[in-house]
Amino acid sequence: MGRKNNASSSDAPPPPAPEPVQPEGEAPQPRPPVQVLYCGVCTYPVEYCEFGSSLTKCKEWLKEEHPEQFDKYYSEEALQAKIGTLSLEAQTKLEKDTAKAEAKADAKADAALKKKMSSQITIRRIERNKRKHITAVHGLEAFGIDLKKAAKQFASKFATGASVTKNAQGLDEVVVQGDVSDEIVDMIEQEAGVLKGIPVDNVEIVEEKKKKAGE
């Protein structure tokens, strides 16, 4: 795999592509693309930040990263020119709306964070027969963890089978062969691999006994 990576990284960059055209002499050149500066906060081209929901943050970002661009868009003259095209009432209304949208977006982000922090992770140890167990981890996706990747990580760490399956409620969870509940808690504590940003207090271990069949 390492070799493949090397090979692809050496001839992968697209810029070499236009070069073979050059030696042919008059062959037309591709027109170079327009470089657009995208805002690091809202991902819009910087001139559209004013319509986004995080103008204040966008402004700060631009001031820090590209001061010369900042002057172009937010200097006094630029603002004056902008106001010139709009009536005064429309302008104040727009400003009010922007502020409102910004507050709303902030509140939303807050709520999302709160929800994330309060969501629980359940590690269930399910008895398969007397001395064999499987471990089901539920709720990882609330912390933005890719379940498939987590399963892969568990599988390679414990050298057992691990997969993403739907449980009885139809929700996705990671199922690992063997009793590894304590080890998983340790991994979450150490933030190993993809298991990042999970408060340990939110992790809960549950034991589940198999019902005796036929009795």
Partner: peptide, 11 residues
């Protein structure tokens, strides 16, 4: 679009 430019977008 010219073929060369398309080539740059989609080699």
């Amino acid at each position: 679009i010219e073929p060369e430019t398309l080539e740059a977008i989609w080699p």
